[in-house]
């Protein structure tokens, strides 16, 4: 009976496979435990050597030398250390790594081995600016996976290299860089470094809305008044998210010339923009718009009422007076928004 035999073979085969899989796992565990112990010991030794170095009691060749060729270990220890310590001690440790030839080891590792190891080496290389380092990192930028490219660009910028904003935006647009919060963060740094480039990037009509929002947001934080005109121009953009981002950025810029634009945004048909505008008025401290904010207390959308009340609170005396007045006299919704805003600050209505 061939079918029956086949079924039994299948059953026994699977059971056997599972059992041997289990034995392999157990054996690998034993091996892995040993390797992990060795790795932890190596890491401990490097850390001890670093501490000895800080106290001036380290014999570099003897204490750190044996590990200098292990790129991932060295970069992880270094990153851990640099996340804790700066100042003279940082310089001391970097000089020691340099004298042992660690940067060259890390550079060689950029094109080899696991992605996690590569990423650690890329990040650690930011601490060793040199033409060779920059060349090696640029190599990653032109050929690596998106995550690694982003890490490499960050390291180049951190090491003082030039990373043109236009290039970053172009890469983001075609997906060569991941469109993530991390790249958003990086973009913010680049914009802060070169607000002029950001302004010309915004003048390009082909810039997609998602990126436009990121650049607008970054420009607001960068605090360059030269951005005022381009931000104001975006308050009239067709996309509501772009308008909201422009309005928020104007708020953070805190320039009085933003007043007419924010006044217009307070009347925007989109509630998201109105709420952003109310918040921006508070951020910028434009008490000349206090009455416009009072109108926002009557808005049909809770978010706008909430932001209007919060903004009035931020405006100080003129805002508080209006809030107290609204709490007593205004319509139900406005009075409630006003009195809650006051109560949250522990103030009487």
């Amino acid at each position: 009976m061939a079918l029956l035999t086949l079924i039994w073979l299948l059953a026994l085969g699977m059971t056997f496979a599972a059992l041997s899989w289990m034995s392999v796992l157990l054996a690998m565990r034993l091996w892995h435990d040993r390797r992990a112990a060795r790795r932890a010991a190596a890491r401990k030794s490097v850390e001890q050597a670093l501490i000895a170095l800080l106290l001036g009691k380290c014999d570099l060749q003897r204490d750190l030398g044996p590990f200098a060729g292990r790129a991932r270990l060295m970069s992880e220890c270094l990153l851990e250390f640099l996340s804790l310590v700066r100042g003279a001690d940082r310089t001391l440790v970097l000089a020691a790594f340099d004298s042992l030839g660690v940067p060259a080891t890390l550079r060689r590792r950029l094109t080899r081995g696991s992605a996690a190891g590569r990423r650690a080496c890329i990040e650690a290389l930011a601490a060793f600016p040199s033409p060779e380092t920059e060349a090696a990192l640029r190599q990653v930028v032109s050929s690596g996976a998106p995550q690694l490219r982003l890490a490499a660009l960050k390291s180049i910028a951190e090491a003082g290299g030039h990373v043109p904003l236009g290039r970053v935006l172009a890469d983001l647009k075609v997906g060569a860089l991941p469109l993530s919060g991390l790249s958003g963060d990086f973009l913010r740094d680049r914009v802060a470094a070169e607000p002029g480039e950001a302004i010309s990037a915004l003048e390009d009509d082909l810039l997609p809305s998602t990126l436009r929002v990121l650049v607008l947001d970054a420009l607001g934080s960068a605090g360059d008044y030269a951005a005022l005109d381009i931000l104001a121009a975006h308050v009239g953009a067709p996309d509501a998210e772009v308008r909201a981002a422009a309005v928020q950025a104007l708020g953070r810029l805190k320039h009085p010339a933003a007043r007419p634009h924010l006044a217009r945004a307070l009347q925007d048909p989109d509630s998201q923009v109105r709420a952003a505008a109310a918040e921006a008025v508070g951020d910028a401290g434009l008490d000349g718009l206090a009455d416009d904010l009072c109108a926002g207390l009557e808005d049909a959308v809770w978010r706008v009422r909430f932001q209007a009340a919060a903004a009035l609170r931020k405006l100080g005396a003129p805002g508080l007076q209006r809030l107290q007045h609204a709490a007593r006299e205004a319509s139900d919704v406005a009075s409630r928004a006003a009195s809650l805003a006051l109560a949250e600050q522990g103030l009487p209505s």
Binding site: L10, A11, L12, M14, A18
Partner: peptide, 28 residues
């Protein structure tokens, strides 16, 4: 009954492979 036992064995085999597999994921 011959088939019954054979099929029970297969379903047992599947069960063990899947459970061990999940454990293997966690372990590796």
């Amino acid at each position: 009954t011959e088939f019954l036992w054979a099929f029970l064995a297969v379903s047992f085999g599947f069960g063990v492979v899947i459970s061990v597999g999940a454990l293997a994921l966690e372990e590796t």
